Amino acid sequence: MKPLIYVFYEGESEQQYIDYLKSCFSDVAVIKRCSKRASTNLFADTKSRFEKDKKYRDVAEATDEIWFFFDVESKDRADEIWSERLKTINYLRKLRKKPNIRVRLLMTSGCVEYWFMLHFKDCAPPTQTDADKKKLVEDVKKIIPTYKKGDKDSIWKIAPNYPTAIKYAQKRLQSIKEIPCIEDTDERNHWLCKNCLTFSTVFEALDFLESLNSMV
């Protein structure tokens, strides 16, 4: 059986990247994204879907993984925000028994364009201010001149370079000396959200999909 993965996301660019992954890995995984991005609080919105929407509630026991694809920004650093997110994560995990649903946080500091840049070069620029984010968009345009947020054609030109992004994102995470651990744990993810350093954990989802490919 192919693993069933539901993906919830913040922006239109993430939506197009997910659609590329659906196409690329359709032989080894069933990837389903929510029909529209969260309008306000990504985590609260997702919890509400599984509580109130029959479409999600009825497939919870068959769901193997749930992914949150989002940016980590300075405004999200408060411990109270992480505490609320963790409540949602734990709620979702327990919707399936033995084993629980695996919840992955596909996080990128500042904006998704940093993740896109890692598809082409090893870099760790500042990502938190509006000026930082604008520069990252311009940097992506230097490589893919047609790029704009949510544009399928340009994002589908970026996405096939994901093996390079895996390598550089992993290298970046390993270079952060203060991080409590490299492995995907709640402790690590809380630390990353709180400290807002330049990083992306999207590569971990790609690593997982690649591991499924190797088993075929």
Rank of each mutant, 00 (worst) to 15 (best):
5 I>T: 07
8 F>E: 04
12 E>M: 05
13 S>D: 00
15 Q>V: 00
15 Q>Y: 00
22 K>T: 12
24 C>N: 07
26 S>L: 06
28 V>K: 03
28 V>T: 11
31 I>P: 10
34 C>A: 13
35 S>P: 02
35 S>W: 01
37 R>F: 04
41 N>P: 06
41 N>M: 00
42 L>E: 03
43 F>P: 04
44 A>N: 12
44 A>F: 14
48 S>Y: 09
48 S>V: 02
50 F>C: 05
51 E>N: 15
55 K>D: 11
58 D>T: 13
60 A>T: 10
63 T>D: 09
65 E>H: 12
65 E>S: 05
66 I>K: 08
70 F>Y: 14
71 D>V: 01
73 E>C: 04
73 E>T: 13
77 R>F: 08
77 R>G: 10
81 I>V: 12
84 E>T: 06
84 E>M: 07
84 E>G: 06
91 Y>E: 00
92 L>A: 01
93 R>K: 12
95 L>R: 11
96 R>K: 15
99 P>E: 09
99 P>H: 15
100 N>A: 12
101 I>H: 08
104 R>N: 14
107 M>Y: 01
111 C>M: 15
117 M>I: 08
118 L>C: 14
124 A>P: 02
127 T>Y: 02
129 T>N: 05
132 D>T: 09
136 L>S: 03
136 L>G: 01
136 L>A: 02
136 L>Q: 05
140 V>M: 11
141 K>N: 14
144 I>A: 09
147 Y>P: 02
148 K>T: 13
149 K>D: 09
151 D>L: 07
154 S>N: 00
156 W>E: 12
160 P>S: 10
165 A>C: 09
167 K>R: 11
170 Q>L: 11
172 R>T: 08
172 R>M: 07
172 R>F: 01
173 L>R: 03
177 K>T: 09
183 E>D: 12
184 D>T: 04
188 R>V: 09
189 N>R: 06
189 N>S: 15
191 W>M: 07
195 N>Q: 11
195 N>E: 06
196 C>H: 13
200 S>I: 00
200 S>K: 00
201 T>H: 14
204 E>N: 12
206 L>P: 04
209 L>P: 09
211 S>G: 06
212 L>N: 09
212 L>D: 08
215 M>P: 01
